[in-house]
Design a protein around this nucleic acid. Structure first.
Lengths: 133, 133
DNA sequence: AAATATTTGTCCGTATGTATC
DNA sequence: CGATACATACGGACAAATATT
């Protein structure tokens, strides 16, 4: 449960708790989490605190939140394999909102950047795996 | 400036505005952004709204917030080059809090995962560039 | 089809604590 | 010490999206 005097902020405690439940399979992929109001009541914290906790899981790419529907554990799809040419460089960073829109990426998912010959190719990291061969 | 009637939430408008200023070099890397109270006054929004906007930039890895000091544009350090063996696979995702601590990563920075021979090596994406040669 | 309930999204105001200058 | 600035947290109020009846 949440301990207000532990020194750890409550929204972090709650995020840790929910993350543990997800990783333990307590909430399966695709399953709905309890509503914000419910979690607020059951955990004895304000709704804003619940939203912050869920915001953390969102930015970690662990859950998907949809207005009016609720919060679901994100399902991991099999990644597409992309071959990278020899000598290419690979980096990673979070996408700009524009890139997110263009590649139709959910929140909390990083970009994979392949730099080669002065050009840069972008891939959504939740759908892509790079291989060099 | 911020238009309360544009349909776009104010904290998003402000985040877009600040991001644009950063990318335009208006706030240089290492420079301090205006304080939350200042932004709040100048933009005519609540301080909570300012904090949410800055929170977005934080999760994008664009700025660093330090208690009592202010909000700074993150400086991009020269990345270390890591060589990747042939046949290895590369993925990327956001780190768990534990991984963040172990690798001493700031917020909003993804992980680079190199999978090779059943093992997985982790790198902080803001300090690492992968190459195969 | 329509009304209602549920759930998330936004915004505000306020209060308290902690770190820095 | 005081002033400034960020961090956390709560509460209330609506709005918007979706689900349900």
């Amino acid at each position: 449960m949440i301990d207000p005097h532990s020194g750890v902020p409550r929204h972090r405690q709650l995020a840790d708790e929910l993350r543990a439940r997800v990783e333990a399979g307590d909430y399966a992929p695709g399953a709905l989490l309890p509503s914000e109001t419910r979690l607020s009541q059951e955990c004895g914290v304000g709704r804003g605190t619940v939203r912050r906790a869920i915001g953390i899981l969102r930015s970690e790419g662990l859950v998907d939140v949809a207005s009016g529907r609720g919060t679901r554990v994100r399902e991991a799809g099999a990644p597409e394999l992309v071959k990278v040419p020899r000598g290419a460089r690979v980096r990673s960073r979070m996408p700009t909102p524009q890139e997110r829109a263009e590649l139709d990426m959910p929140e909390g998912v990083p970009l994979l950047l392949v730099l080669y010959g002065g050009k840069t190719k972008r891939y959504a990291a939740d759908r892509t795996e790079l291989s060099h061969s």
